[in-house]
Nucleic acid binder design. Structure first.
Length: 446
RNA sequence: GCCGCUAUCGUCUAGGGGACUAGGACGCCGCCCUCUCACGGCGGAAACCGGGGUUCGAAUCCCCGUAGCGGUACCA
């Protein structure tokens, strides 16, 4: 089995393309297959070094590798021209100057009939499509469909300037590369009979086809920027883990059984099959990815998560903070907002201060807490901190919440933070007392 | 317009004639846990697009309709 996947040469790796790449990869890796990477760029200028680089980086981040390539259609121009000449010589193709207007006029004159041109010896090269019979597309996920040849146009396979059209180029490249399985988006389905016709004219074999359902945004329209993340790069920047992205993408258009949701990459390689790919388009739901990402994130060891967060945020010395925030975040991006006050001091949140420190019992609460913590003997650890703080609550006659929230705001500046005991323990004696004192002064001033 | 594909909870899906009072997951709602936010646990609401067939029996098969999507380029 030889499969090949064609990333879009137009920049970021779109989520839909990523899924196509993933399925090709799983298929090859699960079946001893060879994976070929080829960039579809007959349209010359499309593959810029920057675009390619971002695609390769996205694939690498996902862990999707390949055995051969990258190759480029544009590098194969001579071979394409040779095939075109051969098809003309064999009478399978002809040169014609007919353009869109002529084609339209022809179709208006011939009711329900594909365009048929005449040999003119110049112009673009068109393939001669048979006037009868059907071209059958056999698709692993969709079954068989017969297309009436008479309805198909004589399609252009090379421009007047000699450059090949995509359909010709893929077919030639796939045939030359010995590609046996073509797994691509369903937007190519209606084009498949054209490619099969080219294969037949060339005498090349037809590979096994599988067309994947398209991906849509929440509104059922094509996934676009206004739906949020649309590329693998976007997901990476949003703090998703590659293993979660792979798991989620695998499930968009494919299901293994009645209840399994989590699959490791190795399990996916083993379990994935084209036969179980669904036919209906799927909607990309970032909320579910988010949930799944949180699950993966919580399964990481503290050391591993720390390493990823340090790479993601560019900060170091995060381990202790990571340990107490791990089960509060769903993406890497959520870490810093929750933990920054440990490193940069209390954040400035006037609303939180007014709402919590402005309460009448706040002064009393901070006073009790200050004296309790001030008397706490070393070591300054979570266990001792919790003990004295709970005692302070007891003495104050207030509810735990009435004491802890002012303390939380005094220490972090906000009403949302890791557990209060963990926070106090991590901050350390000096910093904790200093922040409490600072908050008390601020309160008196106000 | 023509050709084609698709159609199960809001979303991802399981289902391939009786096991379906249609299963799981996300999200949502409620309860529990609780120092905030989360996490976690428990429970709940929520779907077979419509109409005809076939059959003793249809979510499952066939036809029609409807809707969505794709193709119809000297784009990929």
């Amino acid at each position: 089995m030889r499969v090949r996947f064609p990333p879009s040469p137009t920049g970021a790796l779109h989520i839909g393309n990523a899924r196509t790449a993933l399925y090709n990869w799983l298929l090859a890796r699960g079946h001893d297959g060879t994976l070929v990477l080829r960039i579809e760029d007959t349209d010359r200028e499309r593959s810029t070094p920057e675009n390619e680089q971002s695609i390769f980086e996205a694939l690498e981040w996902l862990g999707v590798d390949w055995d051969e390539g990258p190759t480029y259609q544009s590098a194969n121009a001579e071979r394409h021209a040779e095939v075109v000449e051969q098809l003309i010589a064999d009478g399978h193709a002809y040169r014609s100057t007919a353009g869109p207007e002529e084609v339209r006029a022809y179709k208006e004159a011939h009711e329900s009939r594909g365009f048929r041109g005449a040999e003119e010896g110049e112009g673009a090269v068109r393939l001669r499509v048979p006037d009868e019979g059907v071209t059958v597309v056999r698709d692993v996920v969709r079954g068989e469909t017969a297309f009436e040849n008479t309805l198909l146009d004589d399609l252009v396979i090379a421009r007047a300037d000699g450059t090949p059209i995509y359909h010709l180029a893929v077919v030639v490249d796939d045939a030359d590369a010995g590609i046996t399985h073509v797994v691509r988006g369903a937007d190519h389905y209606s084009n498949t009979p054209k490619q099969i016709l080219i294969q037949q004219a060339m005498g090349a074999p037809t590979p096994v086809y599988a067309h994947l359902p398209l991906l849509h945004g929440p509104d059922g329209k094509k996934l676009s920027k206004r739906h949020g993340a649309t590329s693998v790069e976007d997901l990476r920047e949003a703090g998703y883990l590659p293993e979660a992205v792979i798991n989620y993408l695998a499930l968009l258009g494919w299901g293994y059984d009645e209840e399994t949701t989590f699959h490791t990459v190795d399990e996916l390689k083993e379990r994935f099959s084209l036969e179980r790919v669904s036919k209906a388009p799927a909607v990309f739901d970032e909320q579910k990815l988010r949930w799944m990402n949180g699950r993966y994130l919580r399964e990481l060891s503290v050391d591993e998560l720390t390493a990823r967060l340090e790479a993601f945020t560019g900060h170091t010395g995060l381990r202790d903070a990571v340990a107490i925030t791990q089960d509060k975040i769903s993406t890497l991006a959520e870490f810093w907002p929750l933990a920054r006050s440990f490193f940069e001091g209390p954040v400035d949140d006037p609303d939180a201060r007014a709402k919590v420190l402005g309460k009448p019992e706040a002064t009393d609460a901070l006073t009790q807490v200050r004296s309790a913590l001030g008397e706490l003997a070393e070591p300054w650890e979570q266990e001792g901190v919790e003990r004295v703080l709970r005692d302070a609550v007891e003495r104050s006659g207030l509810k735990a919440k009435q004491v802890f929230q002012p303390l939380r705001v005094a220490l972090t500046g906000t009403t949302v933070s890791p557990g209060i005991f963990e926070t106090v323990a991590l901050l350390g004696r000096d910093e904790t007392l200093a922040r409490v004192d600072e908050a008390s002064r601020g309160r008196q001033a106000a």
